[in-house]
Design a protein around this nucleic acid. Structure first.
Lengths: 345, 345
DNA sequence: ATTAGCACTCTCCTTGCCGGAGTGCTAACT
DNA sequence: AGTTAGCACTCCGGCAAGGAGAGTGCTAAT
């Protein structure tokens, strides 16, 4: 039935959506007639609009206003009508430069790209880093961090760094600690966290662990520090960009709801996790996204990968009225860039 | 002249400020008369109010509205009239618990306390961590982080952790890297960053550095990684709490200005740096704070220390109309708590 | 010095009215 | 049959007028 719409009808829908995206105002039949070169009179457009409304793609705020697209209208537009803009050379360059500046550990890189993405799209940008549980360790190190406090630093392939504090550990001499650290490092390299845990448990069972002090301490500390799974992370950049959207100028409550959602990392996680698995870009319009509190918010997101496994996703959050033709290629490019950057890490 | 106010006048001022803090509405003479037990009639209060207005402590939004305190009015109230509330047992407990949960590295601790402070005060909370330049190193470690990429991790006394990436470093064997790391760690422990830099330069000048490969590499890498001073950090928690303040419900622009300021770390830095040096709590009301864009914002902040040296400050940002009698003790307590926590680190 | 009384001012809310934008329907046109 | 011109209708937004309420400043009496 949706596919049963003829060409003329879909063209009208496209123009309505695009005009609404540009102006944030309800669109009238007159405007569309002009936009289409007066090939059709306003009256005809009105008939078509009535059909589109019946089909659920348009709605009227009140009897004598123009139409605005519904969630379904946007959905159809995105799925069938969207003409992607190509990124400007300059925008790509900027993104590359941002990636280059993120020369610290991985979170710096991701943050930098996210910030620029946010500025280019004039929306808030969100990055989710999935739990490092299934990433491969590159190195670990134990460092003295205080009296009876030792810090376990883990570096993953791709450059993610985490710390975990081990408290109440009896003090070791510097030399001893270095040996313990070296042994643990040897054990860790090339393994994922679950693999390392398993290996530690296996080693602990062996005879030797009971006699070799260095080995024993290393295994005990490793087991303790790695007991809990490391959680994922969420970065939000460019909240301020969202303030420029006219929909938030009038409706303060909506602004509040979305800002509150930003404080709840778990909400953001839920919003983006669909994009994480899939390889293609994901666009959730309004109600479709599973978060009850945000029926009027859209999320455009794409996963990025490290080699074959997905390690997170990057995207934009904003009002449903978003310039998808521009925003979708931007997010896609940013995700691709991250994937590339992680390739040679 | 300010001190020339008699007791009655100041009592009236106090009541006006407190009522305004509670209601966010202009306060009339009738209200104050009732509040003071009808000892004085509204007419008398009006005369006093006129005096206070002349002295610059009160203002009228328009001729026939009540009075609201000016910046100077708040200032006087804070400096001379304020009766601090004592913290509820429960609130102190909560703060302690939050500090206990921040059992990771220092930034976890600080973040946790900041978040709770924000929730208790119903304002946005800000923590500034001053540059670690003058803190004392506890340990450093070099870790493999990729092909020709090495990560230098530094842990300060107090538990602050930083990483710096060294790129284009030729690969070393694990064994070699551990030796280099160990040597650098030995050099670093107990020194501040500038001291370590100086020491590295001194060692580099020595004959031995040219022949001993381990030593040479260690010094070279140390010099490179530590070339730039590490910047300070800013954490903002509880932005959403600020949304509840009624002043922002009406005036969206003000909300936007402050949210935009939150995106600019340098602005926050400027706002809090006064508090960093001083030992006492600092309250900046409106225009007093040096940031042009935020004339109607107050900052309550206090530095926290690590031993004798101040390492940062924690505070609250919100509208000038803030419950100072409650908020000031809260911030003070939180700062004190952080100082205590860092004592045994 | 304080206060009662009163006229005055200003905001805010409601009401009513008008113009504009846009629709839906009908009847005529191709 | 589909398209279009014409027209009555609806609804919003802005504006002005009017009244209630809150609060003030001033004056005169205590």
């Amino acid at each position: 039935m949706a596919s049963g719409m003829d060409d003329r009808t879909t063209r009208v829908l496209r123009h309505i959506v695009e005009d609404y995206i540009a102006t944030a105002e309800p669109v009238g039949s007159r405007t569309i007639s002009k936009k289409m070169g007066q090939a059709l009179s306003p009256a005809t457009i009105r008939n078509i609009m009535a059909d589109l409304e019946e089909a659920g793609f348009l709605a009227q705020p009140h009897t004598s206003a123009g139409r605005i697209p519904t969630g379904a209208g946007f959905r159809y537009y995105i799925d069938h009508l969207l003409l992607r803009q190509t990124l400007a050379r300059g925008e790509m360059d900027q993104l590359h430069r941002a990636a280059g500046e993120g020369n610290g550990p991985a979170d710096e890189l991701v943050r930098q790209v996210s910030r620029l993405l946010s500025n280019l799209a004039r929306q808030a940008s969100v990055v989710v880093v999935s739990s490092p549980e299934h990433q491969v360790l590159r190195s670990v190190s134990l460092m003295r961090a205080g009296v009876e406090r030792i810090l376990l630093v883990t570096v993953m392939r791709g450059g993610w760094v985490q710390h975990r504090l081990i408290e109440g550990e009896p003090d070791h001499t510097g030399d001893e600690l270095e040996k313990i650290s070296a042994y643990l490092n040897e054990l860790a390299e090339g393994r994922t966290l679950p693999q390392l845990r398993a290996r530690i448990l296996a080693e602990l069972g062996k005879e030797k662990a009971r006699y070799d002090r260095v080995m024993g301490r290393a295994l005990a500390m490793g087991a303790r520090a790695l007991a809990d799974a490391a959680p994922g992370e969420v970065f939000i950049e460019g909240r301020a960009n969202i303030l420029e959207q006219p929909e938030f100028a009038e409706d303060v409550d909506r602004l509040k709801r979305i800002l509150r959602a930003f404080e709840e990392k778990s909400v953001i996680f839920r919003l983006l996790d669909r994009a994480m698995e899939s390889r293609a870009i994901q666009v959730s319009v309004g109600l479709e996204n599973t978060v009850e509190e945000l029926p009027d918010i859209s999320v455009v997101a794409s996963g990025y990968r490290q080699g074959a496994s997905s390690v997170g996703s990057i995207g934009l959050i904003g009002p449903v009225r978003m310039d998808y033709s521009r925003v979708i290629p931007l997010v896609e490019y940013a995700a691709g860039l991250l994937t590339t950057m992680f390739e040679d890490r």
